[in-house]
Every structure is written in C-alpha cells, then in structure tokens.
C-alpha cells in the first residue's frame, strides 16, 4: 500500500550541501552534490529553511511554516506543501525518509 503523499516525511539537504543566494524575487540555490544551479521563488527557500535538519511530513511542515508565515488559514495548505515537497524531491533538494 502506498502512503498518502501528505504522510511522506522528507528531510532537506544538510545546510552545507546547498549554497543559497537570494537575489531579488528569485533565489539561487547551488546544489553541491549535483553541481546544478536552481533558480527558485517563494515558498522554496522558506520551506528549506523551516525544515532545518528535521524529517517532516507536509502537515508538520505546514504547522511550522504557519508560525512564521500567514498561510491564510488554508485547509489545503498541507496538500499544497506536499506537492512542493514532491517537486523538491525530484530536484534532489529534499529526500523522502523511509520508515
């Protein structure tokens, strides 16, 4: 049985693995392991910062983000964040944590 996307826990790449340079509306992220430069907008830098070194699922991350950002009381915040986490996992910037 496949876990619901919102239940998958992810861990961000350790802080030393990424070089993050905010420019203007865009932020540059250099991923040392792959040598790839990513150009991202919000909420990606915010998500990576909020995750710190912890393994979190989408709901836990939504709770953590809501402490700093106004998520507008969105009921679907966890679902949206789950989508972003899945995209970040494809880029290699976060990894799904098993078990």
């Amino acid at each position: 049985m496949t876990a619901s996307p919102e239940k998958i826990r992810y861990r961000a790449e350790p802080s030393g693995a990424l070089l993050i340079r905010p420019l203007d509306a865009m932020t540059l992220i250099y991923h040392r392991a792959s040598g790839i430069t990513h150009m991202v907008t919000e909420p990606v830098p915010e998500i990576l910062e909020a995750m710190a070194g912890d393994a979190l699922d989408a709901a836990e991350l939504a709770t953590r983000l809501s402490e700093t950002f106004d998520l507008g009381g969105a009921d679907d915040a966890a679902a949206i964040i789950a989508d972003r986490l899945a995209e970040l996992a494809e880029l290699g910037l976060v990894s799904a944590v098993r078990g």
Binding site: L19, L23, D24, M26, L28, Y30, T37, M39
Partner: peptide
C-alpha cells in the same frame, strides 16, 4: 535588469559556467 534575469542571461552567455562548478556559481 534585475540580478536574477542578469544571472540567467549570463549563464546562457557562458561557455564554461557548468564546468567551473561552485567556483562559477560564486
């Protein structure tokens, strides 16, 4: 031209940005 657009255009204008890795990024 905002820095992000400048960055994007200059990576396209560079022949060795990728080859230089982190040095190129910095």
């Amino acid at each position: 031209m905002p820095p992000s657009e400048t960055f994007m255009r200059l990576t396209q204008a560079s022949t060795n940005y990728v080859a230089l890795g982190e040095q190129g990024f910095e």
